[in-house]
């Protein structure tokens, strides 16, 4: 069984399991008619829809994360060629990471990670 078939088959098994849970709930729940409910707001009525643009802090951290994460994907193939390429591979990767960390430190000093 090659990796591709195996992963698809496992996905099938997982989805069957999830489908089984939903099927069992559908067969067993009663009343099956959904209850018209509202969001829990400490016993009061909500005064507006909750879905909204969230606080700006998340956006700055997300940008920082994306920048770092995209670059980090390079590290996966890099792990396989360290001894083949030699010392230059290690030096280049860690200089690169040092640049990224310098970026993080700059963002930190600018308050991008300040949460309150």
């Amino acid at each position: 069984m090659n990796g591709f078939t195996a992963s698809l088959a496992l996905l099938g098994v997982a989805l069957l399991g999830v489908g089984g849970v939903y099927g069992a709930a559908r067969a067993l729940r009663s009343p099956a008619e959904p209850l018209p409910a509202g969001p829990f707001e400490s016993g009061l009525e909500p005064s507006q829809h909750a879905v909204s643009r969230f606080h700006v802090r998340w956006y700055t951290v997300s940008m920082l994360f994306l920048a770092f994460d995209m670059e980090m994907v390079f590290m996966y193939p890099w792990t396989r060629v360290i001894s083949a390429v030699g010392a230059s591979a290690v030096i280049e990767m860690f200089v690169f990471l040092a640049v990224l960390v310098a970026g993080v430190l700059h963002a930190w000093r600018e308050g991008a990670l300040r949460w309150t």
Binding site: E41, G43, L44, S47, S52, R53, F54
Partner: peptide, 10 residues
């Protein structure tokens, strides 16, 4: 920024 009006309690 978006504002939500929420109460904690009763």
């Amino acid at each position: 920024l978006d504002q939500l009006h929420v109460s904690l309690g009763p």
